[in-house]
Design a protein around this nucleic acid. Structure first.
Length: 783
DNA sequence: TCGGAAATGTTTTTT
DNA sequence: ACATTTCCGA
């Protein structure tokens, strides 16, 4: 039982508590995953059959990691039989088996958000409602929220409060749309993301036999990221665990950042009410971050009113101060981060994979991306559009989905005229009318196109299309996913469509198709099926991929800088973390600042961002930023004021153009730190390094001129004196004393951008701004 | 029915 | 700034 080795007391307590409800309040970086995996190992070691253990996570990645770590302790033979997965994927698997008891086909289609919105748009238009007012995404959000709170279409229509909300927003028909949408999904043999929870709930509630089956199958239940569960998830867990009550939940209220998805911290309180004999264990020792980082995070979170009492501490060292960087533009922010990465790599031998750049919104990735590319720093962006959401991929998947489930109207609409085969809008309208009239799937309606008044060439084209789909369907039983996919690729004319397009995007699309086909091939050739039967059918493949996200793509361990939203970074850690865009309206985001709850969630998000960092953290904000194509001015984020000065080191590499006059004293820190100018509450520490004159672009001098004893100026470290120089001509390393930047720094002269102070004052530093050519980076201005 | 041009919305976060 | 949607003529 050497797996107990190295656990601290509360961790050991959590691992050893095998029977009965357990709540682990796990602060950031407190070894939560280790406790969970060790606990699973311990359960099995104590004789619990792995088949009886269910572990639910929020991301596939977390599930995979957990499984791997249990395997490392126990070996893969036992661990293979564990049921570990995301809520959505585990429930999808169960629904695939039990779904027919609710009237769904076992090969039901999973609609992603785009599919759902598209179907809603169709329905809104069919109801003769204005889709400008009844925006599909708004309606979708309402329906999603309802399902996550276990409110069905009927409850929705009867709930006076809900009804009032909809009338007040001018969308009283929302409830009606919900009903139609639910019916339509059912008719299409499809479930959306929320259905995977809601239908699972209905299944357990309506079919006692199924409930009993899984209650006895899952005798030990573990829930990760419990603070992110919504009422639907809570209720499912409660029902599944009702017999044995061996429910272990792990969470941290300070990291609850998914309320927009229906998650509620209430679940934490409810849990303790529902299970009075719950053992509560707090993990408060942080093993991840330096003192500076952890203490800053602790300070920030105290500004929230609602939180569970806990005190995170660490034995780790003080570490570097948190760097605070202000730039003039978003592009400069990107450049500053790219510069810092290069510098840290060279001076401290960090690898690319040690860096993460985090931001509030996906749109912010751009400036970072451009600058990393310019500096030849390999990077990978997570989030944004996932591979499977690309148009060409979805088109192809549309065929596959239709073949597997011909009731799926969304897929049918997507591909019916792609490539063009002369079946247009008018025809589809006629068919839709008939389908709705008889309440039959669209594909069935097509079979009787003649009686919908469709004649001639169009009728013929429909006949041909149906024949093609049918003949592909006959392949399903005999052939695996890859074989069917290849057949589809060849026989549908998609291959011609793609080969035809010789544009840059066209070639990229072709390559994406190749990648998709390769992934299908890989799927059919991989022997293990996630503990399940070796089902290599197309249906099995499709079931999986809809629930994959961008983070699940391979290339995990590649040596790249990682870019992602803070949401996507939850659960991860990096030696060096950059958090960008710390500006009012962006972070905290304007959408959230209206309510206390909203603002506090933003603050928790900031807390999550800070606590991702192990040793180095850099925060940045830009004075101006492009938003919808026009320049916006932003104040620094209020969150920056919540970090005590003593943890901060301010590095303002960019001053206002034209304000600096050589020869005069450098601008005082106050002038450069316009944090809430009115309140005047924010002041730089007296010894903080002042920004240097970089109004005109900072023009470094030829490094070969540098000698020991010279006085130099560095853009970030200020004035310094070269103490000594070592190394050959190509790689001379200088040790320079920068009194204002905290002491000696070792700098590679070939890389460093230093100015020789005695070489005179450069001319042309007038108010006109940077003189052309003086900036080696090109001063990249946005036209 | 189809293709290109004009207009319009998008960005808060995700399974 | 960009992508998607809508509009319009062939």
């Amino acid at each position: 039982m050497d797996y107990f080795e190295g656990l601290n007391e509360p961790q050991r307590q959590a691992v050893q508590h095998l029977e009965g409800p357990l709540m682990i309040v796990a602060g950031a970086g407190s070894g939560k995953t280790r406790v969970l995996t060790t606990r699973i190992a311990h359960l099995i070691h104590e004789g619990v059959d792995p088949f009886h253990i269910l572990a639910l996570t929020f991301t596939n990645k977390a599930a995979r990691e957990m499984k791997e770590r249990v395997e490392n302790i126990l070996g893969s033979t036992e661990a293979r039989n564990l049921y570990i997965g995301t809520f959505h994927s585990v429930f999808a698997r169960i629904l695939r088996i039990e779904g027919p008891q609710l009237g769904y086909p076992s090969n039901f289609t999973i609609y992603d958000t785009d599919d759902s919105k598209s179907l809603l748009k169709t329905i809104i238009q069919e109801q003769n409602l204005d889709d400008k007012h009844y925006k599909p995404s708004l309606v979708y959000n309402r329906i999603s929220a309802a399902k996550n709170s276990l409110i069905g279409p009927l409850d929705y229509a009867e709930d006076p409060q809900v009804q009032q909300e909809d009338s007040r927003s001018g969308r009283p028909a929302t409830g009606n749309l919900y009903g139609l949408y639910a019916k339509r999904c059912f008719r299409n043999g499809a479930m959306d993301f929320d259905d995977l929870l809601y239908q699972m709930y209905l299944l357990l509630k309506k079919v006692p036999a199924v409930l009993h089956k899984y209650q006895h199958k899952f005798r030990y239940i573990l829930i990760d990221e419990f603070q992110d569960t919504n009422p639907a998830q809570y209720e499912i867990i409660r029902m599944l665990g009702a017999v044995y009550e061996n429910i272990c939940v792990v969470g941290d209220d300070a990291q609850s950042i998914y309320s927009f998805r229906g998650a509620t911290i209430q679940n934490i309180l409810q849990f303790r009410k529902d299970y009075e004999d719950t053992l509560v264990v707090k993990l408060e020792q942080n093993y991840r971050s330096t003192k500076s980082i952890l203490h800053a995070a602790n300070e920030v979170i105290t500004h929230n009113k609602t939180q569970i009492e806990k005190a995170l501490w660490t034995e780790n060292g003080e570490g570097e101060k948190i760097r605070l960087v202000r730039t003039m533009t978003d592009n400069e922010e990107g450049r500053s981060v790219a510069d810092s990465i290069t510098e840290l790599r060279l001076r401290h031998h960090f690898a690319n994979r040690d860096f993460a750049i985090l931001y509030r919104t996906n749109a912010q990735s751009r400036s970072f991306e451009e600058n990393l590319r310019r500096m030849n720093i390999p990077y990978r962006i997570y989030g944004g559009i996932s591979f499977y959401q690309r148009k060409e991929i979805k088109d192809f998947l549309g065929y596959l989905r239709l073949i597997v489930n011909s009731r799926d109207e969304e897929s049918l609409r997507r591909i019916i005229n792609f490539p063009p085969r002369g079946i247009g809008k008018t025809t589809m309208e006629k068919l839709t009318l008939m389908a709705n009239d008889r309440d039959i799937p669209l594909f069935e309606a097509m079979k009787e196109a003649g009686s919908a008044g469709i004649r001639g060439g169009t009728l013929e084209a429909i006949g041909k299309f149906i024949l093609m789909i049918r003949s592909l369907q006959t392949q399903l039983e005999r052939q695996n996913a890859y074989e069917v996919a290849m057949q589809v690729f060849r026989s549908t004319g998609l291959i011609k469509e793609l080969v035809h397009d010789k544009s840059v995007e066209g070639v990229a699309r072709y390559e994406n198709m190749e990648e998709l086909l390769n992934s299908i091939k890989e799927f059919t050739e991989t022997p293990t099926g996630d503990g399940e039967l070796l089902d290599k059918s197309l249906g099995s493949y499709l079931q999986q991929i809809t629930l994959l996200t961008d983070a699940d793509q391979e290339g995990e361990d590649a040596d790249t800088v990682k870019l992602m939203t803070i949401h996507a970074a939850k659960g991860l850690e990096f030696p060096c973390v950059f958090v960008g865009g710390l500006e009012e309206a962006l972070f905290p985001n304007a959408m959230a600042t209206g309510t206390r709850e909203g603002l506090e969630e933003e603050r928790r998000l900031f807390y999550v961002a800070i606590t991702r960092a192990k040793t180095r953290l850099s925060l940045s904000y830009a004075n101006t930023r492009y938003h919808f194509g026009n320049l916006q001015q932003n104040d620094p984020s209020r969150f920056l004021e919540e970090i005590p000065e003593k943890y901060l080191q301010k590095n303002f590499t960019t001053a206002y153009p034209g304000r600096f006059h050589p020869g005069r004293a450098p601008l005082g820190p106050e002038a450069l730190v316009p944090l809430k100018p009115a309140s005047g509450g924010q002041r730089s520490a007296p010894g903080a390094p002042a920004a240097r004159g970089s109004d005109r672009a900072f023009a470094p001098d030829d490094p070969s001129l540098m000698e020991a004893g010279n006085e130099v100026e560095h853009q970030k470290f200020g004035y310094g004196r070269i103490l000594r120089i070592e190394g050959a001509a190509g790689s001379r390393m200088a040790t320079i004393l920068f009194p204002e930047a905290g002491g000696e720094k070792r700098i590679l002269l070939g890389y460093a951008r230093l100015r020789l102070l005695k070489s005179g004052t450069p001319a042309g530093a007038g108010p006109a701004g940077p003189s052309p050519g003086s900036c080696p980076e090109g001063g990249s201005s946005n036209p």
